[in-house]
């Protein structure tokens, strides 16, 4: 099994249906699959449920999707930022549903989704407004809250390098949500700065095994330093 390597972000994205659940990686600028979200903007899917740590910055593609009313619901830990004006306006107008999730719960719910775990008990959020109405249990003396898994139809992820088998290596703190989101979607689409031949990534250093990856596209991402981008077509790591 190999990952399909595409020439453009739009081709790699493929068709996304209206109403799809879409995971978008990234924490701030690091790890944002900017060009894949731009392709989603162009593709036209609406009524989306987006799972992402943040809710768009400035006029970026996620912010524009929200502005255009194409995101029905967002599952998010930190939507409010200095430049999240499109989300803020939609939220205040009541035109977007927000499921606010503590960041660690968000990551673990996605991890559970990818691992076939239906739900788990966690101490995070116990006794707070974000646990209201949820099942609780005291385990080993610690009060815990039941949190359910999250899965998606499509995950959009940014990594640093892929090989033809879809194995991924990330770069610095851009790794963040990529490895868990890649496991939790029916289809995982990845943009990278470099695609290497099968066998060119040391198996001991693979972060996301290729089994989780469906589509790959090589792009010069705007959020990866030009100096950190390998020359296109470089053959070894």
């Amino acid at each position: 099994m190999t990952a399909q390597v595409y020439g453009t972000a739009r081709e790699a994205l493929g068709d996304i249906a209206d109403g799809a659940i879409v995971m978008i990686g990234g924490f701030g600028p690091a790890g944002q699959p900017v060009e894949l979200v731009e392709a989603l903007l162009e593709q036209g899917a609406a009524d989306l449920v987006v799972v992402s740590n943040n809710a768009g910055n400035g006029e970026d593609a996620l912010a524009r999707l929200i502005q255009l009313g194409r995101v029905r619901k967002i599952v998010c830990s930190f939507p409010r930022q200095v430049d999240s004006w499109h989300f803020d306006a939609a939220y205040r107008a009541g035109s977007i549903e927000l499921e606010l999730v503590p960041q660690g719960n968000l990551a673990e719910r996605i991890r559970a989704g990818g691992a076939g775990i239906g739900a788990f008990f966690t101490p995070t959020g116990y006794g707070t407004p974000l646990a209201e109405g949820k099942e609780t249990r005291v385990l080993d003396g610690v009060p815990m809250v039941l949190e359910t898994a999250i899965r998606a139809d499509v995950a959009l992820v940014k990594a640093y390098r892929a090989d033809g088998a879809g194995n991924l290596v990330y770069r610095r703190t851009a790794r963040n949500f990529g490895p868990v989101m890649a496991t939790a979607a029916t289809r995982t689409v990845v943009q990278v700065s470099e695609v290497l031949p099968v066998g060119a990534i040391d198996p001991e250093t693979v972060v996301t095994p290729g089994i989780y990856v469906d589509s790959v596209v090589r792009l010069d991402s705007t959020t990866t330093l030009a100096g950190a981008r390998p020359a296109a077509g470089r053959a070894t790591s």
């Binding site: 830990s77 930190f78 939507p79 409010r80 930022q81 999240s84 989300f87 803020d88 939220y91 205040r92 927000l98 606010l100 999730v101 503590p102 960041q103 660690g104 719960n105 101490p123 995070t124 959020g125 116990y126 707070t128 974000l130």
Partner: peptide
């Protein structure tokens, strides 16, 4: 009541 909420990792850090 009119604030846009955000929590980030605060709850995870507090109890972890």
């Amino acid at each position: 009541p009119d604030a846009v909420p955000a929590v980030g990792g605060a709850m995870d850090l507090a109890v972890g």
